[in-house]
């Protein structure tokens, strides 16, 4: 195998034909001046590319970039959705620091994310390892494990109240078979978050599919070599499987951490929805739920925008730390990050 090189191999014939004119600086050539006809052709190509890209570009500008920029502006205003925003400087950010519910909601969110992400990935990895060993029927089970991902999150929230009901819920029924008196998952503040974390495992199927694909790409010869060296299942998993699927694991850590910080629908449906069967609970007040309340229930859209930017910065910071840590822990076969 030849060593990788940064230098572009140059085909002299192509250079002579002028097709690599814009790349020759890397190869140490001085590009010959482009002819007017070639410049016109290149411009036509540019416009054509722009035309084909324009739906996406417009969509990005209007529906992504503009809201991002505008929310940054709104975070510096007092805005009630209907009247024009009033510029208030950094008042919203000062209020963020003073608002005890921000600390409460952030604490709940961090607790949820710190517990849920490793648990989610651990369960997904365990299931993927099992599926990778059952041969032909793995396709069936893969489908079965993925099916819960089709359940709308609102339905999962309602399901949570039923399955985890402290009195007659299925979970406590099962615990009862083993002589365990299950807690009031949905009404005891100490058990609300653990209950929601367990319920989130309902949708572990997508991660299982990703890890299963990664597992199937691990060369079988490595396991054979490991076995010959006397490595058992756990040793093979630790020394072969996990390093080789570490990019997939890292990907899951990143997306599940972001999803954890944005946790909303299930908890909102279960504890903050309308009707007499639910009631709000400090233990389930996740950051995005509080953001939603401020923006869309209390109509403090400026404050909600400041909250959104704070969350963005926190997620950015956490992701940056994860990226730095990943340099030491994630193994890429090609040797490149």
């Amino acid at each position: 195998m030849s060593a990788p090189t940064n230098r572009m191999p140059v085909n002299p014939a192509a250079v002579l034909a002028g097709t690599l004119a814009d790349k020759t600086e890397k190869g140490g050539f001085t590009p010959p001046p482009a002819s007017p006809a070639r410049r016109r052709a290149r411009r036509r190509n540019f416009y054509s590319a722009l035309l084909f890209l324009s739906p996406w570009i417009l969509g990005f500008l209007i529906f992504t970039l503009w809201p991002i920029l505008y929310s940054a502006y709104l975070s510096l205003t007092d805005y009630d959705v209907i009247n024009a925003p009033t510029f208030t400087g950094f008042d919203n950010y000062v209020e963020l620091v003073q608002d005890p519910k921000i600390a409460l909601a952030l604490g709940n969110t961090i607790f949820y994310t710190v517990i849920q992400v490793p648990l989610h990935i651990g369960v997904a990895l365990a299931l993927a390892l099992l599926l990778s060993r059952i041969g032909q029927s793995s396709g069936f089970f893969r489908t079965v494990f993925f099916l819960p991902n089709m359940t709308p999150p609102v339905a999962v929230g309602v399901l949570f109240l039923l399955v985890f009901n402290g009195q007659n819920g299925f979970v406590n029924l099962v615990l009862g078979w083993f002589g365990v008196n299950g807690p009031a998952w949905t009404t005891d503040p100490n058990w609300v978050k653990p209950g929601l974390i367990l319920m989130s495992l309902w949708q572990v199927g997508a991660s299982v599919v990703i890890l299963l694909a990664a597992l199937q790409s691990v060369p079988k010869e490595l396991y054979e070599s490991a076995r010959l060296d006397g490595a058992g299942f756990w040793r093979q998993t630790r020394s072969v499987t996990v390093p080789l699927i570490s990019p997939a694991l890292f990907f899951l850590v990143i997306i599940n951490t972001i999803a954890g910080f944005n946790n909303f629908t299930e908890a909102y449906t279960a504890f903050f929805g309308s009707g007499n069967s639910t009631y709000s609970n400090d233990a389930a007040l996740f950051y995005v739920i509080y953001l939603f309340q401020q923006g869309f229930e209390f109509l403090h859209m400026g404050y909600a925008s400041a909250m959104a930017w704070l969350l963005f910065l926190i997620v950015l910071l956490v992701t940056a730390v994860q990226m730095i840590v990943s340099r030491r822990l994630v193994f890429y076969e090609g040797g490149s990050q």
Binding site: N168, G169, T186, T187
Partner: peptide, 14 residues
Amino acid sequence: GFAAVKAFRDSADF
């Protein structure tokens, strides 16, 4: 306590 009563209430076929 409320937690027990509410859990029981929620399990009813309202």
